[in-house]
Design a protein around this nucleic acid. Structure first.
Ligand code: FES
Ligand code: FES
Lengths: 132, 132
DNA sequence: ACAAATGCAACTGCAAAAGTTACGAGCAAC
DNA sequence: GTTGCTCGTAACTTTTGCAGTTGCATTTGT
């Protein structure tokens, strides 16, 4: 798959779930629809469950369901739940040591953090009920 | 190395060059300083040469030199020269087909393009002469 | 009991990027 | 014009992250 495959999979799936929230879906269903593997689906949706966006149930009639109203789940919620930041480098743990690297890192990471924040802000303006 | 190694290497090197523009540096010098390989340096700096930020000369007293004044080279110039976009997915060439994916892609790519643009704008506000 | 589903761990396969090696071509010093 | 240093580039190897896969324990409804 491509680069942002986890985010794509998550958004695609939630987009479908938003348009029919009562239906329970199994990871096999979702995997087949998305052209991937049930285990991959569980890995990705598991992150969303940890973040409180989805619920899952084991057993015979189990599967995945939205944990909130579709209008109350934004693209930012999904993005943050997967915690794979697109821009911010986060903790690089590099020895700052020299002045060039120190000044550089400071400038760049400030910009990147700002950009990351505005990305999240923009994503929070759209809910998954608007992308079906 | 880490994820944004090319950008890090480029910025680090230009930062040093900005603080002593007249000195000519060989890829071996730079590689040793940056803890990498001369060929990798030439690959990365080659991109910057294509973009008109650096000049290189072969032969006995050859090496790398800034092509402009340090104040006239911004972080955005370097970022764009490497053409590895951080956020914008660019041409995904996916069949839009279904309505969910279409709406999703439209929303997300709009946001991403805006964010990419504001990243470049922010980076263009700092020149390499300010990070030494 | 049985079938159907998640949860999880471990392994394989693959592709992109860094790193490496090798060699050709240009330029300066001698 | 020969030598030594440099870039330019192609080909190969190594590393690394991630999707994909397999296997099995656990839970749950029939
Ligand atoms: S070694 Fe510290 S900035 Fe280059
Ligand atoms: S198949 Fe799911 S949006 Fe088209």
């Amino acid at each position: 798959m491509k680069r942002n495959s986890r985010l794509s999979l998550a958004l695609h799936t939630l987009g479908h779930m938003a348009s029919d929230p009562n239906r329970v879906r199994t990871s096999s269903d979702i995997a087949e629809h998305a052209g991937t593997n049930p285990v991959v689906v569980r890995r990705v949706l598991g992150k969303l469950r940890e973040a409180g966006l989805l619920t899952s149930e084991k057993g015979h009639a189990g599967g995945w369901r939205l944990a909130r109203q579709p209008q109350d789940i934004t693209l930012a919620d999904v993005y943050l739940a997967l915690d794979e930041r697109m821009v911010a480098t986060g903790e690089t743990s590099e020895a700052p040591a020299c002045s060039v690297e120190h000044a550089l890192h400071k400038r760049v990471s400030t910009v990147l953090e700002d950009i990351e924040a505005s990305l999240v802000k923009r994503l929070s303006e759209t809910s998954i009920s608007e992308v079906r």
